[in-house]
Amino acid sequence: MTACNFGNVEFFNYDWKSVGKWNFTFLFGSVLGGFLGGYVFTNPEPIQLAASTISDLQALGIQDFSGLVPDDLFAWNALGSVTGLIVLIVGGFLVGFGARYAGGCTSGHAISGLSDLQLASLLAVIGFFIGGLLMTYLIYPFILS
C-alpha cells in the first residue's frame, strides 16, 4: 500500500485496494466509453458552437474548429509552445489540485452535490465560476496572445 504513497503523505493513507478497485474499474470503463463514443461512433461534423464564441476564439488565434477540441492546443506538437504547455500542464495541475482542495469536481459538486441540495456544493460551484470567469475574461487572452 505505501509503495504507492511516495513520501507517506497522510492524505493518501487509506486502503486503496478496497476502495480503489471499483474506482479504477469505473475509470477504465469511462475510457472505453470515450473510445466507443469518440472513436468508433465518432461524429464527423464540427460542433454547432455559438457564432459569437467562434468569432471570439478566432480573434484569439484558434484556427481548428473541426473536432471536440482545437488541434492548435491539443496535439503533441503543442508541447513545443509556451501556450500549449500552460494549457495542458498548468491546466491539468489546477484541475487536480482544485478538485481535491474543493472536495469534488463538476460531477461531484455541481451534479451530485447540488442534487443532494448541499450548501457546500453550491459554494464550490460559485468558486468554479469565479475561477472560470477570471480565466476566460482576464487571463486566457494573455495566454493565447
Partner: peptide, 18 residues
C-alpha cells in the same frame, strides 16, 4: 469550497476538461 473551487475553475476554463 470557494478558494478550492476557484482554483478548480481556473483549471477547468484553461484546460477545458474536468
Amino acid at each position: 469550497y470557494i478558494l478550492g473551487g476557484s482554483i478548480f475553475g481556473l483549471g477547468w476554463a484553461l484546460l477545458g476538461a474536468c
